[in-house]
Computed example of a mutant assay.
Amino acid sequence: MIIIQLNQRQQKIIEIVKENQPITSENIASMLNVTRATLRSDLAILTMTGILDARPKVGYFYTGVNQINLLGNDIKEKKVEDMMGMPVVVKKDVSLYDVIVEMFLSDVGSIFIIDDQENLCGVVSRKDLLKATIGGLDINKMPIGMIMTRTPNVVTVKREDSIVLAARKIIEHEIDSIPVVDMDDEHNVTKVIGRISKTNITKLFLEIAGE
């Protein structure tokens, strides 16, 4: 059996739990000076691999690295194209109102924005839409292109990338999902062909764990 290589923050979480168990996620986040949302993926990995145990209204306990039951090679061999889902895309001139409706009907945390040639040109999250509505913008007239995060500041992956790389990008950039793209630098084309989210990655861990 091959032990999964843990990142630096996951190792620090283990140390904190061992020294302070039982401890809540709020207290762990406070000690690391990060938000609870930032730790969500790390804690999910550590509990699903059996290193930590979580009890409602009590907190996290250390159970031991020897109890890891996931095969590292199985995870490393998985590619983005093996796990990606269908992307939710809208044109950049669509109104904020229509994007809000689309987001809740599709039940996603982010929507990818494309231009008239259907190339990726931006992304918008629930937080972006919330800021826009609180800011008093006319959501019926304002095009989504005015508030989106624009390329090249959009984090992307390719279909041949490893799922580990996608997971690392989601954690490091604290985002809900990543567009999977086909890129043609010669013709300046970036087509959205899929979507990798925290849910996809969680399902992968459960699949490998046999759940």
Rank of each mutant, 00 (worst) to 15 (best):
T63D: 11
K92A: 14
V99D: 02
S30K: 12
I201E: 01
G64L: 09
I16K: 02
A29T: 14
V34Q: 12
E118I: 04
N153W: 05
I196F: 01
V108W: 00
E19R: 13
A166Q: 05
E81P: 00
N119A: 01
M142Q: 10
T35G: 09
K57A: 13
T190E: 05
I28A: 14
D115T: 03
E118S: 08
E207A: 10
N7C: 04
M142D: 07
K191G: 04
I75A: 15
P179S: 08
Q5P: 08
M148I: 06
V124S: 03
I139W: 04
K91V: 14
E207R: 05
I201G: 01
V124F: 01
G145I: 11
S30E: 12
D93A: 10
D107T: 11
F205M: 04
T49R: 05
Y97M: 09
G109W: 06
I111T: 06
S162A: 05
A37G: 03
I196G: 00
D182V: 15
D98T: 04
G50M: 15
L96C: 09
I170S: 02
I178M: 02
I23W: 03
S106K: 08
I175T: 08
A44C: 10
N27E: 15
I208S: 01
I134K: 15
M142I: 14
N188V: 09
L46D: 05
I75C: 12
I16W: 01
G210W: 11
I45T: 07
G135P: 13
D161R: 04
N200D: 12
G136C: 07
L130T: 04
I51H: 08
I147R: 10
S95D: 10
R40H: 07
L39V: 06
N119D: 03
P22L: 11
E77C: 12
Y62P: 13
I68K: 02
V154L: 04
V90M: 14
D128H: 12
V34L: 10
V34H: 11
K78R: 12
L206D: 02
V192E: 01
E160A: 12
G136N: 07
V124L: 03
M48A: 09
I147Q: 13
K158R: 09
A37C: 02
M148P: 02
V88Y: 08
N73K: 13
E118Y: 06
F61A: 14
V154C: 05
Y62E: 12
G72Y: 07
L71E: 12
V157N: 02
T49E: 08
G72N: 10
K79W: 00
M1E: 06
R195P: 00
D53T: 08
N153H: 13
I51L: 12
V154Q: 02
V181C: 06
T199L: 10
I3V: 08
A132F: 13
I111Q: 01
R55C: 14
A132L: 11
C121A: 03
I14F: 03
D161L: 05
K57F: 08
Q10H: 07
V65D: 15
Q11A: 15
L52Y: 03
N66L: 15
V180R: 01
R126A: 07
D42L: 04
I208L: 13
I75G: 15
D42W: 01
I113F: 00
C121F: 00
P56N: 14
I2E: 11
T199H: 04
G72H: 07
M31H: 14
P152Y: 00
K12S: 11
K79P: 00
F61S: 14
P179N: 07
V88Q: 04
R36Y: 01
S106C: 04
A37M: 06
K79L: 07
K131C: 13
